[in-house]
Design a protein around this nucleic acid. Structure first.
Lengths: 185, 185
DNA sequence: ACAGGCATGTAAATAGTTACATGATTCG
DNA sequence: CGAATCATGTAACTATTTACATGCCTGT
């Protein structure tokens, strides 16, 4: 039917690895694509129903014990749809970083406060970097010969957050050099 | 009034440099914060009215010749509101990169097609990098002694897109190494 | 005369988050 | 037994983009 949302493609992509429940898709997303493409339950569950209705995935009951559970499997149509999308040049590149935005306006603050903005940013990125490294350690690491795309993307996340931390450190130095009085609270 | 939107703070921040029209704010945003915080007319104009209604900015007519024009000036309350917000630790850090998402699922594609995804990403980031460097060349460059926050943020954008381009190149190499047949197109 | 930039605005659609409601199972 | 986790879903809200409508001014 009409154009699918990006979330629809995230789901289709996740389903290429085998049938999954909405809950499983959500936690997969949270442990992989989240840092460059997030999705909430409020998007995932309705979208799964739409994919089923459109014939791109099929739902089937698959309870775990007495706990109801619906898993979805991608169809041949679904896979074609996914591939067609993957072949289109990517369009969306967005970033929203409140820290950079605050720093941009930091002239109205005291240097010590501007410094604190950068420190917050650094703490956050250090955190992300640590979590991504943990994920990397968990997945088979070690530069596999036939390149693993998910691993390559994970590496991008690690490098990116690493670069960001380094940039924060250098920026903290510059603020301190320009206003030596700004050293801590 | 209730909580202000982030867009409201972008506007307040832009107004600290002097009174501006909605149109001017939009083009400022497009030439500065855009790569980490965008805003459209559909947000800016209604938000300006809200800021005026809430006493954080004041509107005044300031036509250019026969062309009507409304400029907004930040009030003391507006400046306090802005500073209070700047002092809160930043919360929002988001990225949506359709290229990384596509690469993540590239296993279902031919290596040549995966390569094309990365090349698209690289072209896009090269473009961004070029435009940011142009902006940098236009603004007074040369590491001013009292650190310029907007310039520091611009540098972040340049470094970030530079890192991204380099990562794409390395990833292209890896794909070619794993599947030497993927050359060209 | 016409293109492009200046200027303001709104309506509709789309996207996405948050909070809530519900209930079963597993592990300590 | 209680907490965490598995599991599904919806309603309300907030955010944001896109497309459109309007019209003046400046430079070629």
């Amino acid at each position: 039917m009409g154009q699918l949302s990006s979330t629809a493609y995230v789901i289709l992509g996740m389903l290429t690895g085998g049938p999954k429940s909405g809950y499983e898709i959500k936690s997969l997303v949270d442990n992989s694509t989240r840092f460059f493409w997030a999705a909430s339950y409020g998007q995932i569950y309705p979208e799964l129903k739409r994919l089923d209705a459109g014939g791109l995935a099929v739902a089937s009951d698959s309870p775990t014990g007495g706990r109801r559970r619906t898993v979805y499997e991608i169809t041949a149509d679904g896979e074609e749809e996914l591939k067609a999308w993957l072949r289109q040049p990517p369009q969306t590149f967005e970033m929203r970083d409140e820290g950079l935005l605050k720093l941009f306006f930091a002239e109205v603050l005291e240097p010590a406060e501007a410094l604190e903005v950068v420190r917050s940013m650094r703490r956050h990125r250090e955190d992300v970097n640590r979590r991504l490294r943990q994920l990397q350690a968990m997945k088979g690491d070690g530069d596999p010969d036939p390149i693993s795309y998910p691993l390559a993307v994970l590496e991008a996340g690690i490098e990116f957050s690493g670069w960001f931390v380094a940039w924060c450190k250098r920026t903290e130095e510059r603020i301190l050099t320009a206003a030596p009085g700004a050293k801590d609270r």
